[in-house]
Design a protein around this nucleic acid. Sequence first.
RNA 1: GGGCAUGUAGCUCAGCGGUAGAGCACUACGUUGACAUCGUAGUGGUCGCAGGUUCGAUCCCUGCCGUGCCCACCA
Length: 882
Amino acid sequence: MLDKTFDPKTFEKNFSFDMEASVRKPKAEPFMVLLPPPNVTGSLHIGHALCYTLQDILARYKRMRGFDVLFQPGLDHAGIVTQLLVEKQLYANGVEKGSLTREGLLKEIWFWKENSGGKILDQMKKLGVSCDFSRLRFTMDEGSKKAVTKMFVKLYEDGYLYRGKKMVNWDPLIGSAISDLEVIEKEIEGSLWHIKYRVKGYPDDIIVATTRPETLFGDTAIAVNPKDGRYRHLIGKEVIVPLTDRSIPVIADSYADPEKGTGAVKITPAHDFNDFEVGQRHNLPIIDIMNAKAELNDNVPEIFRKLDRFEARQKVVELLEKKGLIEKVESIKHKVPYGDRSGVILEPRLTYQWFVNAERLAAPAIEAVKQGKINFIPKHWENLYFEWLNNIRPWCVSRQIWWGHRIPAWYGPDGQIFVAETEKDAKKKAVAFYGKNCVELKQDDDVLDTWFSSGMWPFITLGWPDKTKELERFYSNMIVVTGFDIIFFWVSRMIMLGIYNMKKVPFPNVYIHSLVRDEKGQKMSKSKGNVIDPLDLCNTYGADAVRYTLASLASPGRDIKMNSRLVETGRNFLTKIWNVLRFAQMNGCTYNKDIDFSGIKHPVAQWIVVQVKKMVKDLEIALDNYRFDEATKIIYQCVWGSFCDWYMELIKPILQKTSLDSDTKEGYNLQQALLKKDIRDVTAWCILQFVRALYPISPFISKKLSGELGVTDMSWPDVDVIPESFNDSVRKVELMKEAISAIRSVRQFLHISVGDKLNVSFEIQDAEISAFISENQELLNRMAGVVLTENIGSRAVSIVVSGATLKVSIPNTVDIENEKKRLMMECNKLKKQRDDSVARLSNEDFISKAPADVVDEHKQRVEEMNEKIERFNFIIKGLETA
RNA sequence: GGGCAUGUAGCUCAGCGGUAGAGCACUACGUUGACAUCGUAGUGGUCGCAGGUUCGAUCCCUGCCGUGCCCACCA
């Protein structure tokens, strides 16, 4: 027997789903859920909770439907994030900055990973995520290393990968190139200095505006627009770079925009993307004035060397001012690139890096989505995908950090590159290349972008480069569920690398879930203090309620405004189901696996079984279409709206009365006993179906309740066993429901208290329904407080429902005028509806152009309304004469 | 500058070419045997604005306004 109160804490901890997650069904259709591997440093936030809940719903649902489901967990080594985190901890513990060797730091990070990493996995278990944890993968485990190295070599040998000196976004704190996608533009208040550059052999200065005066040491030209009359005469002249004695040319380039600044722009090819381009066009020298930490180097006058870029800026400005070389300073707002991870201002920097020719990989990736081999859900995300891939730039895959996959490239003494899977192979190549035996090779110091390995996730997890049976079965049969923010980082890379490496798309569907925001619609962030911790929610309301609520909010294409009160709704619903089973248990309902539907005769039982069947069918449609929100509503409506509000109330007399009778042995008869058994069977059967239907969404309580029913098997409800003939009962019960609601409504309207028993009589055309009503008159009594009577006195109100008119006696205290008002109101509503349809039907265009079924519908509506209105009028007339 | 999404009840959101929906909130009434994490009945909406297409528009199209986001540029 269940406890009186529903407390998820008492049973959620008792369940683990490892067993079912690891079951393989070799003969069934394969289905894989490709879990986006969380960072090894990660801890579960609300976005993860949503993402994993949706994935887990799919995994469980597919398992229940008989698929061979692989739901494999993993962790991402998260290069930069992890290295920064461990370094920070080491420094905090007294390790001196820069004192660690590569090997030393890696040892520390591995140690950290083994002891403190992957906490999120336990948190996932708390949320009930049914991954097969026995197949946990790490993006830097041995298999991944092997795969990544092989992939790198393959790409290189196929000509997709090259090393080149290019300008990249450089993070001076990390000391590495970072991805263009990790550049965050922030608008800040800054200054625009107008600096005088002296023109050689010319009286006037040329004024150049810049936000970065410290970079003037790297200037190698001043550009003006050839069409700009102000400067035309200066083109070809030499100017002196302030604070130096270096002269640089004034060049003509359309890049200089006469509208911006002074129209003359300093060109610093080593420190600006656009300037680099200009420099290339004009063959300008490149003067790099900074080191990896963005301190000025030996290419600047001695007093500025070793200064940080901002200190240098201050000093440059001071000196310029002293020399009267600053014409004016403007305050401006401008956007500055920041590193997403480090939070510092980035520097464009010219360095040797490894690049993947992404354009070549992108073409088939674009094609695959265009041809519908891959579908985004919701579809509009495809626009974003196309937009990015159509404008894709070379993918810089090298990072100047230590934690990650070391680039399998070796250099000969002359810089010759040898790319190979092992050092031994590289040596062989070197020997062949140089034609001598003893060659000193040095491995590339850099590691690969973390997304390089993540991009291989669909086949790494399945064992590639080995030819595993999982790879054969699951590749191309998976679903990806993830946030829009990693469409570029992850989804598109998986598609590109997947098609390139496996010659077919990794997955046919990508579900993009919404962003979870706070209740005001703001992005959650630690600094704003508006973070909702899913684990807190789980502790308060239970993981099931959190999952249920997240699913209910997962409408496609709209961000989620999260609020812990919303979880209450979920919790309340689960409480309701808990109490449903408690009620059933108290009334001796046990699950009968041999239930024979053909023997179930009671219309109310038949009706609810039909409702459950409909629920299951609707649920299948919803889940097959990733409508998690619909799914929760469908279950809620059936359990609460149909089963609790009606079925349970309607069958209570049967369960409770007969149990009393059988206790006393008085009035006990076989018919009643059999009926009671049927109702008990149906009740338990329905609850089991609810529990199963709910299992993908809220597995803990489902498992608990099904256990109470003595069922451990969690297969999807089989509703095809329900006889079609049950549909006939729907009319009867629906009329009963309508009558009960109408009587209750009248009661409230006329302020007749529930205690007052009223008499009621029915006028029903349909004999079967009529018989059903009189056979079940005690239900009317119980639910609406009315007693079926042949002759009702003249003090009565009439109620018009579909297919019947009811007369209900009313006490003397009730004001007849009120009743008239009520009837008129009801009647006017009907008239309005009728007139609307009549108006349409009198429109010839409507008759000729609207579809026949719509026209018929309106004709029928007019008839129905007229019939009801007639009955109303009759009643109102009667009331007036009374 | 280019693009995407979004605007429906007080709030959070479904829906959709053919009679505007749910949950919460609110109002009234109720409840000692499944459940107050409850029940019953109600109140509440020119579906952002303006045009157009259509027999018919909340839904499709165009424009505008508001909101959120993405990309690009910025001397």
